[in-house]
């Protein structure tokens, strides 16, 4: 098991190197004069000179890359060309918002997707199955921002049931320690605010979670159907086990395996989708920050966000793979 984790960690190294080369190239590829491209209207001769030496653009390529790599490894992820704020500090204040949103979406996708998939598998071929297939088809076919806008119109504008902007009532005052409001409101003992945060979270989570939900429901359905046809499930029935036991112990224990992998893979899509969702719901997270950065031609921010998101994706999938190995004795003992 330890060997397995080490092997997986080692396998991530070439990917990280590739990623760093790609992102290094990204800043270099920006068309024309880097000053024009990066600084845009903020351009002054001094800023330009500073930028060039800051980025080391006057030195040979390989040296520039090494510098970039070392800086990145030491935690220096560059700074904004607009306000010179270091990336990491700003990122850390924004990130909890994205974490909260992604968590809500994942919870929604798993909490609804898996039961739907199981139900569809149990009624395979029936109208319930058809309905669920239809819902998941719709889920993968509707863009997050269209669904988001539709939810805003229906539940916010027409019905007025739920807030459609922000993470919490703007007038709320309390100690935010972690930045994750679900936790902070509870720590502050403000149940009323906690409920408010949850209410703010509902619509964005549904919008962002719809695609993973559809994918998870599909894979759960397929996995349950496949496992249900396995010989060992027939064996379990032939032993006279109760149907409930057959389902929970023999079918689901095996059907989880592909589902966990797919859940891990959804994290990339969720982080990407957060960019759009945060825009729709005026959600204070990394996504909206990136959109602002694009508009301001603040490329170092875009560059480092891509890097951090990719690393998060790799780490999450590493964790999922290890979890998979723990669930699956065949791998565990290799």
């Amino acid at each position: 098991m330890g060997r397995y984790i080490v092997r997986r960690l080692l396998a991530a190294i070439p990917v990280l190197i590739g990623l760093s080369i790609l992102l290094f190239a990204y800043i270099r590829i920006l068309p024309g004069d880097p000053c024009v491209a990066i600084l845009g209207q903020h351009r002054t001769p001094e800023a330009c000179a500073a930028l060039i030496s800051n980025l080391g653009l006057d030195r040979p390529l390989w040296e520039q890359y090494i510098t970039y790599l070392l800086k990145t490894l030491s935690g220096d992820l560059g700074s904004s060309v607009v306000n010179s704020q270091p990336f990491l500090a700003e990122f850390l204040t924004r990130f909890p918002g994205t974490v909260e949103l992604t968590f809500g979406a994942l919870l929604f996708a798993i909490g609804v997707g898996i039961p739907l998939g199981r139900l569809a598998a149990r009624k395979v071929g029936g109208w319930v199955d058809g309905l669920i297939t239809g819902v998941s088809l719709f889920g993968v076919s509707i863009p997050v921002f269209v669904l988001g806008l539709a939810l805003v119109v229906i539940f916010g504008v027409i019905l007025g049931w739920l807030p459609t902007q922000g993470r919490i009532d703007a007038r709320a005052r309390f100690d935010a320690t972690s930045g994750i409001l679900l936790i902070d409101t509870l720590l502050a003992g403000r149940l009323d605010l906690f409920v408010d945060v949850v209410r703010h979270l509902i619509l964005p989570s549904i919008a962002l979670g719809s695609i993973p939900l559809a994918i998870i429901a599909r894979i759960t359905r397929a996995s349950v159907i496949e496992v249900a046809n396995e010989d060992y499930v027939r064996t379990a029935r032939s032993k006279g086990l109760k149907e409930k036991t057959v389902d929970s112990r023999h079918v689901m224990r095996n059907a989880w395996l592909p589902v966990t992998t797919v859940v891990g893979l959804q994290v990339g899509g969720l982080l990407g989708g957060a960019v759009l969702t945060e825009t729709v719901f005026v959600w204070n997270g990394v996504g909206r920050w990136v959109v602002d950065a694009i508009q301001n031609h603040d490329y170092p921010i875009v560059q480092s966000t891509i890097l951090v998101f990719a690393v998060i994706f790799l780490v999450v999938n590493l964790v999922v793979d290890v979890g998979y190995a723990l669930l699956n004795p065949k791998i565990r003992y290799q």
Binding site: Y232, T235, A236, R249, L327
Partner: peptide
């Protein structure tokens, strides 16, 4: 008892 002992026992139990 079934044909394939490789697949007739549950691999995760």
């Amino acid at each position: 008892i079934f044909q394939d002992p490789m697949t007739s026992l549950n691999p995760v139990l």
